[in-house]
């Protein structure tokens, strides 16, 4: 398992970025329903690991951060989901549903 993706918030972030070119910080916070501070801390860990890329721009005078999934992040996500599926399929029948 990917330790970084064991957190539901970080896994949500990567899943949110899977089918998009980029998403703004505000949009991510709204989608994941967490506080800006909490999301910022999780995003920083994903950026540090090279799973996501951060781009800082300006909307007028207001700073705007947006995020995209890197190839490293995509590969880690796929591997992690496969391992989750393997864990689920290896579980006894009664624990699956």
């Amino acid at each position: 398992m990917d330790d970084l993706l064991l957190s539901k918030i970080r896994l949500s972030v990567v899943a949110e970025l899977l089918n998009v070119q980029w998403v703004s910080f505000t949009d991510l916070a709204r989608a994941i329903e967490t506080t800006n501070g909490n999301l910022g801390a999780h995003l920083a860990k994903l950026v540090d690991a090279g799973y996501i890329a951060e781009e800082k721009t300006y909307a007028g005078r207001r700073p705007l951060s947006r995020y995209s999934l890197t190839e490293t992040g995509r590969a880690a996500f796929v591997a992690h989901v496969r391992q989750l599926e393997a864990l689920l399929s290896a579980a006894p029948e009664g624990n699956r549903s």
Binding site: K8, L18, N19, A91
Partner: peptide
Amino acid sequence: MDSSDAREHLEMVERIVAASSR
């Protein structure tokens, strides 16, 4: 992580991916 957590995480991922695959 146990199978119940794994299922919960997978269902969450499926929900998010389904919503973004518009």
